[in-house]
Structures are given as C-alpha cells and as structure tokens.
C-alpha cells in the first residue's frame, strides 16, 4: 500500500462546493431584494457573509477535500477553515435576520414562534453549542472515529457537515448578534468562550503527546510519512506519521487560538458599542 493512487476527480467532488456556492447566491439574492425594498440591512453583513462563503468554499474545494483525506495536516487546515473561521463571518452576515425579513410576514410569524420554543432555546444555548462543537472534536480525534471516517465516504461527509453546523451554531450563540428571547448574557457567553479556548488547547496537546488520532494503516498516514515536515527529515514511516500528526496538532493549537481571539474581539466590540448605542468612534479616538 505504499503507492497511493491519486483519485481522479469526478462530478461528485464538486457537490460540497456547489452547495456552498448556492448558499452564497441565495444570500446575495435575498440581500439585494431587501435593499430594493429599502429594508434596513447593512452592506457590512453582505461583505462578511461573502467572506464566510469564500472561506467555506476554499475548505470544500475538491483539491482541499483530497488533501484533507490523504494527509492529516490537510484535514486540519480544512477543519480550521470550515469549522472555526468561516462560521464567524457567516454569523456576522445575520442570516436569520435576512431570512425573517425576506419571507412573507405570516411565515416570519410562525418562524418566530418556532424560534421561541423551548427546544430551540436549549439547542441554541452556548453550552449546548460548546458541547456539540468541542465535544464532537474530542470524540472524533480521541477515538477510532477519525480513522473510520477515512474509510467511509458517508461518515466522512457526516463529519464535515457536523463541523460546519456545530461551528456555525457555536459562533452564532456566543456572538449573540441576532438577539433571541432569553439569550444568555455576556458573562455566560464569555465563560463558554473561555471553556472553548481551554478545551480546544487541551485537546491539541493531548493529540500531540499521545500521537492521536491514530493514522497508522491508513492512506493518510502513509501519505503523510512521505512528506517533509519542518521538524526535520524523517527516517521511517511511523516517525513520519507521528510527526505529521503532531504538526497538525500544533497548527490546530495556534490557528485555533487566533480564531478564538477574533471571536473574543467581536464579542467585546459588540458589547462596547451596544452599551452606549449612540457612541461614535470619533469620541473614542478623538482627533
């Protein structure tokens, strides 16, 4: 199994990126419709959503999917893009507000009733989102699930969909830009971000120290073993696999940290400007 056949691209490879493109186009059309009806929605939201869609599309593009499948470092870049960076920008595009403003009033009313339900309240709570997001990662990387997902296209797809949805739910619930009734206050959301940074960092170190996830006997492991790492030249397949896994863990640690830092800055910026609604940047930075 030392020679890995490079899989030929098929039309199925383009399904994920097409779904992302469709999402972006839908948003754009709804946004332009709202602007035409002179509804109050800022171009900042459009810009942010476009950036989010772009990051998601890069993470779902066929070459990225192949790299992510064949090399754990590729998988980690993909994970960072689709589960940590893209959700921040998608959520700042206020997709729910856009949808509620775009649909007919009767539908919007029913949607609001649904959003006020207890089930949605529990699901959209930051703690639930944290559990689904970081908890999912602990299960994926510390159990044989990751190895299994490499062998099964269905499981692989489920893992990626979960990454995107859990990432978006997490960003959406802690940023709190789209106010739901009974939204937990700032302290709860900060506590959840704090836990997320800590648990994410711990997971990376555990992966680094115990050489998890186990990628021996997979094409990804052998593929990774033939690559060079910055920590030096490898002597054997096993060492190469461990080094590639550790490199992925370090990448997840530092780049994941940056994503959480961006999230913190956004939460505090919103707090700062919401506290005194009429304050302008000029009064903060005079002259």
């Amino acid at each position: 199994m030392m020679n890995i056949a490079i899989p030929e691209e098929t039309w199925q490879d383009y399904i994920p990126v097409s779904i992302v493109a469709l999402l972006g186009i839908t948003y754009l059309l709804l946004f332009l419709g709202l602007r035409r009806r002179r509804r109050n929605i800022s171009y900042w939201h459009l810009g942010s959503f476009v950036i989010g869609t772009f990051i998601l599309a890069v993470g779902m593009a066929p070459p990225m999917m192949h790299w992510g499948h064949d090399d754990i470092r590729g998988h980690m870049v993909q994970h960072l893009l689709i589960a940590m960076y893209a959700p921040i920008f998608l959520v700042l595009g206020v997709p729910l507000k856009l949808l509620l403003l775009s649909v007919p009033p009767s539908v919007a009313r029913n949607m609001t009733i649904f959003l006020k339900s207890r089930a949605i309240h529990i699901l959209s709570h930051p703690f639930t989102a944290l559990l689904l997001n970081v908890g999912g990662m602990y299960i994926l990387y510390l159990t044989p699930l990751y190895q299994l997902s490499l062998g099964s296209p269905l499981l692989h797809g489920v893992v990626h969909v979960h990454f995107v949805l859990a990432g978006c739910l997490f960003a959406w619930s802690v940023i709190g830009l789209e106010a739901l009734p009974n939204r937990p206050d700032l302290y709860v959301r900060l506590a959840v971000i704090f836990l997320s940074i800590a648990l994410h960092g711990c997971l990376c170190k555990i992966m680094y120290v115990y050489a998890l996830p186990d990628i021996t006997n997979t094409a990804a492991g052998i593929g990774a073993a033939t690559c060079k790492t910055y920590s030096g030249v490898m002597t054997g397949v096993d060492e190469g696999m461990v080094a590639a896994g550790q490199e992925a863990a370090v990448m997840m640690y530092y780049w994941g940290d940056l994503a959480e830092l961006i999230l913190l800055v956004i939460v505090f910026t919103l707090w700062f400007f919401r506290k005194q609604p009429n304050v302008r940047l000029r009064t903060v930075f005079p002259g």
């Binding site: 900060l190 704090f194 940074i197 800055v265 505090f268």
Partner: peptide, 17 residues
Amino acid sequence: IMADGFLHAFELVLLVA
C-alpha cells in the same frame, strides 16, 4: 497540560477584556 490550557484561555480572555 490541562492546567496550562485553562491558564492560557484565562490570559487570552483577560487581554481582550
């Protein structure tokens, strides 16, 4: 490792806050 992870998270929140 766990203690370090939590300490690091605490520092990051403190810096921005």
